[in-house]
């Protein structure tokens, strides 16, 4: 059984703004509507609603693991192909370094609860989204 799930499968992440990821991966963790969801090779066909959370793509050929903060959408798995349709996806790795640092700094401000700054700048992220963004930065080894 284990040998069946060893190997890679096609993984595509799309938003209305464009395709953010199109690669072969060996394992993907998705934020399902009711908890985390692991996808390996030869997964049964599945249609799943996504919630707010971090998508982790592991074992990408010639690349490091990728992390994306997703906010709702759908995942379709069929015939060793995973297609994720998300409303919105944030990846610190895909951003310019200055912008990524700025985004993370603002997320940190929201997480630590600096009410004054929040009031001054307007709340860009929900507190849950900000918390997940900080967590994603830690997971991907990104620091301020």
């Amino acid at each position: 059984m284990v040998s069946l799930s060893v190997g890679t499968f096609k993984c595509v992440l799309m938003t209305p703004e464009g395709t953010l990821l199109d690669c072969k991966a060996s394992a993907v963790t998705l934020p399902g509507h009711d908890g985390s969801l692991g996808i390996l090779r030869n997964h049964a066909p599945m249609l799943c609603k996504l919630g707010l959370g971090i998508m982790v793509v592991r074992g990408v050929v010639d690349s490091n693991d990728s992390y994306y903060l997703l906010e709702g959408g759908f995942a379709r798995v069929s015939q060793n192909s995973l297609t994720v349709l998300a409303y919105d996806a944030i990846s610190l790795q895909g951003m310019a370094e200055d912008k990524a640092r700025d985004t993370l700094a603002r997320a940190n401000e929201i997480v630590v609860g600096n009410a004054y700054i929040r009031r001054q700048k307007g709340q860009e992220f929900s507190s849950e989204k900000a918390r997940l963004l900080v967590k994603m930065a830690e997971m991907s080894g990104f620091s301020l």
């Binding site: 509507h33 009711d34 066909p45 249609l47 709702g72 959408g73 759908f74 069929s78 349709l85 409303y87």
Partner: peptide, 23 residues
């Protein structure tokens, strides 16, 4: 290549459709 019935659905079809319609 596959029918709707071939898929494992999470949550059920009505909830999936509601979210899909919104999207």
């Amino acid at each position: 290549e596959l029918n709707f019935e071939d898929f494992i659905l999470s949550p059920d079809e009505n909830e999936i459709f509601e979210s899909l319609a919104g999207m």
